[in-house]
């Protein structure tokens, strides 16, 4: 897997934000390096408010880091020149266009790229079927459940066939059952053509169940990776079953030991604030 150019390489990234009240700058992420090989599924876990999303926005080219560099398949990514064209981004919050029907949301990316309408619709219908939303194309997002909206967002992102998939706690708003269904669907879709995935979550179990590698971040401010764990559980996986296996539990114990202190630190910091 490590052979060839990495799909995504973050080198020595530091993100500082100017404080609103004119006080000292807030350092969200400090000196973070992260490499994702082509076809690799990497999860980043860390306590809440530790700058995980900041890191993802840097990888997407939506945010320019204060320091450090990003390269995508060997090419440098400069945020000022535009977003990461080879990446698809699934947001934590709803990012569907409420004024577009399901199908029109799915084909939005194709439309932006100038794909003829008929061809876009054909692809869109195919994707709706793949995510289990066949026949729901004419519904507006507000007429769908949370799980359906997530699947729609997944189709909207995957229809462009991005080489890199950036996911920011995409399933955190779902109930446990829907969430496990979605995780399995994601794994099935991923297994078809093995994109590189950078998956952000605060849920360690989700991270282990899905990934090839789990990176643990320290509590903020000045977040940096403090652990990098290889997940060598067999694939294909069923996320609800794999949670019971001894291998999973051993990994969970090991990673949690590294994470626990940071989670407590983050909690204490939040309580003090």
């Amino acid at each position: 897997m490590s052979a060839g150019v990495p799909a995504l390489r973050l080198e020595d990234i530091t993100c500082r934000f100017a404080a609103r009240d004119g006080g000292g700058a807030y350092t969200a992420v400090a000196n973070t390096s992260l490499t994702i090989a082509a076809g690799e599924f990497v999860s980043v876990v860390g306590p809440t408010g530790c700058g995980k999303s900041t890191l993802l926005n840097v990888a997407a080219g939506l945010l320019a880091p204060s320091q450090g560099s990003v390269s995508v398949f060997g090419q440098p990514l400069i945020a000022a020149d535009g977003v990461n064209r080879r990446a698809g981004y699934m947001f934590q919050a709803d990012a569907l266009m409420p004024w577009r029907t399901g199908i029109d949301n799915v084909v939005a990316g194709l439309e932006f790229r100038g794909v003829p309408r008929a061809e876009a619709l054909a692809q869109g219908e195919a994707w709706l079927r793949r995510v289990g939303l066949a026949g729901f194309g004419d519904r507006y997002p507000h007429q769908m459940s949370g799980g359906m909206r997530k699947r729609l967002a997944l189709a909207q992102t995957l229809i462009l066939s991005p080489d890199i998939l950036l996911m920011d706690e995409p399933f955190s708003a779902l109930d446990v059952q829907t969430r496990q269904l979605m995780e399995n669907e994601l794994l099935a879709l991923w297994a078809e053509d093995r994109k590189s995935v950078l998956f952000i979550t605060h849920d360690l179990e989700e991270a282990i169940a899905l990934s090839d590698r789990v990176v643990v971040l320290s509590a903020g401010p000045a977040t940096r990776p403090i652990g990098d764990f290889k997940v060598d559980l067999p694939r294909p996986r069923d996320v609800s079953e794999i949670r019971m296996t001894p291998g999973f539990l051993a990994l969970h114990r090991e990673i949690w030991a590294a994470m626990k202190e940071e989670v407590l630190k983050a909690y204490a910091a939040q309580k003090a604030a």
């Binding site: 990461n84 990446a87 569907l96 939005a108 932006f112 909207q156 992102t157 462009l160």
Partner: peptide, 23 residues
């Protein structure tokens, strides 16, 4: 306009003009 919506459209490849029209 929700910043999420704009970021999403940009990631989907919308140009400035398309952002204006679609978002």
């Amino acid at each position: 306009v929700s910043p999420n919506l704009i970021a999403n459209a940009r990631m989907l490849g919308a140009s400035r003009r398309q952002l204006l029209r679609s978002i």
